[in-house]
Design a protein around this nucleic acid. Sequence first.
DNA 1: GCGGATCAC
DNA 2: TATGGTGATCCGC
Length: 632
Amino acid sequence: MESCWLEGEGQEEEEDMEEDWSAPVDGREAQDQHHSPALARSTVSFSSPDGPSVASDGASSASSSSAEGTGIMTRMELNTFKAGMEGLDKEKINKIIMEASKGSRFYENELRKEKQMAGRISAMMDRLASITPQQQQEALLQVDKMVEDLVEGRDLSRTIVHLDMDAFYAAVEMRDNPALRDKPMAVGGIGMLSTSNYLARKYGVRAAMPGFIGKKLCPDLVIVPTNFDKYRTVSSQVRDVLRQYDPYFAPMSLDEAYMDLTEYLELRKSLPEEERTFYAHTEECFMSKENAAVDNQKKEDMLGETQASVKVPELSVNSTTNIDDEDGSLEKSKVTPCHDDNVSSPCCGTEELPETCEQIAKDVKEKEKPEGHDCETMGCEKVVFGCDAEEVVREIRFRIQQRTYLTASAGIAPNMMLAKVCSDQNKPNGQFYIPSDCEAIMDFIKDLPVRKVCGIGKVMAQQLNALGITTCTHLYEQRAVLSLLFSPISSSHLLRVALGLGATRIERESERKSMSVERTFSELSKPSELYRKCWELCEALAKDLQDEGLKGRTVTIKLKTVNFEVKQRGQTVPRAVSSMNEIYDVAEELLKMEIQQCQPQPLRLRLMGSSAKRRKQEKPPTKTTTLDRFFL
DNA sequence: GCGGATCAC
DNA sequence: TATGGTGATCCGC
Ligand SMILES: Nc1ccn([C@H]2C[C@H](O)[C@@H](COP(=O)(O)OP(=O)(O)OP(=O)(O)O)O2)c(=O)n1
Ligand SMILES: [Mg+2]
Ligand SMILES: [Mg+2]
């Protein structure tokens, strides 16, 4: 097995990954209006570029935007931009979160990070204040040249889909244990939750929240441990479906993937109806013998009904409709789920998964033969899907559901950035479509909160907020200032977002660059214990590396003190390593230095990690893009 | 290359 | 009582 990443001599070639600043639209002139209050005064309006250029008053008013509530600590607050988090009593939930955390070492560390962030923002506001109108005007000219190029290059020819399973781990657990279906539940442990179901989200319980806080928010919360093997199995079933529509689809995690449907949609045009026909088993099928074709709304209803979780009445996948409800009125699923034959059955809860019919949404070829069991005689409902993108995506979701008993949501758009945002729009069990035209894109982008965009996280969102930017419209209005305040990479990303641009080609999976193992444990401080832990981690890492036939040129250790401060130390070695001994030799040395550094205080840790990384790879000759021209 | 920070899931 | 694990990227040295 040839170890990879060793620096072998030759071995160059390899792709060039196409950065592809695709995209673009009609230029739009700015005309702002809706500045957020913080910026209204502080920014130069585009129409009169010589206006007053910002002042630090912008900073003070903006940074006090957290005036609501406790003042600081926005970083610990509930993020209401995530699916299932709409319309909650944020005030109350944040209060509980704060009270549960206050005084803890974790909290103190969060405070420290918050202060640090405030410092960064303050520095940014100072820079902003020092920008002259001339500079701003000049920046605007530069940026607008880029805008022109970007817009000119806009590629609306692709149909990109982002598909994401709903409450994934939680949904799997609910599927396999019906007792959980009508309860607020989360997956993980008392220390940390990986995700929660939508019922629990109503209480503010969410991923990355400690279980004990979840319990405070929702005393009835049921917490079940993770079963990664099951999630992996389901994931592979889902991928089997996706692959049939785009063999080059790109999984981003166990529960989501991007697909490019462009080519498939061409083929689809000539796909006979039989091959777009599927059967669904529902209890109604068994009772009423009608099996007429269903219309779109009916299909959506079926998607809703067959959901193997709480029933969400009136769920619609129509891109124009919203999901509101999904309140408490829960009802057992009406479906009678069936197993796909070649699929390992869920390990528990078999009683709710009757074996009566082995296959529902089987592939057309199989299904077409009405021999044996067969849907027709059983009165299974027949579903015919159309040929446009929305129909194909409904079909995909339908097949996923029939095969896994789980629901998925999807976004359909001309690029990956938009598709990703769209897949969250009608979650759970919904889809959203942005047609390939500029107007539709701009309309969608207009009021889109920047925080919803992939890559804009808590920190960036807060920095932008300090500038009065919360929506993509603001982003466009402030493009000049942004190009001056942020790095070329960041500001070009923001600009692309503002224009509704994103990647239009799905890149094939790149080889991994690192592998790591880390563990949290109850406090350790004795050197002997620390070295032993380090040894265990290196052993585990070496095994993982060897399992994949990989080696690393840089070995690092990661340490988290009991106060949650994180340190990383690394060393690059002349020859790639993969064995336990080679790795530990390096790691031990790094750990020794840290222990000595602390002396005579003990090094008190709550986590340790070990990793092996590949040597940084020379990036292929970058074709000079407009961005390079302007920014480098 | 290193280390801290951010982001996603 | 109690706040995760894995991988990637960016930034400023
Ligand atoms: N901080 C996180 C976020 C997610 N996950 C895991 C559990 C999730 O079930 C799975 C998928 O992540 P999603 O962000 O897609 O969240 P869900 O699928 O749970 O919910 P939904 O997609 O409906 O919002 O990844 C995790 O372990 N830790
Ligand atoms: Mg999901
Ligand atoms: Mg996901």
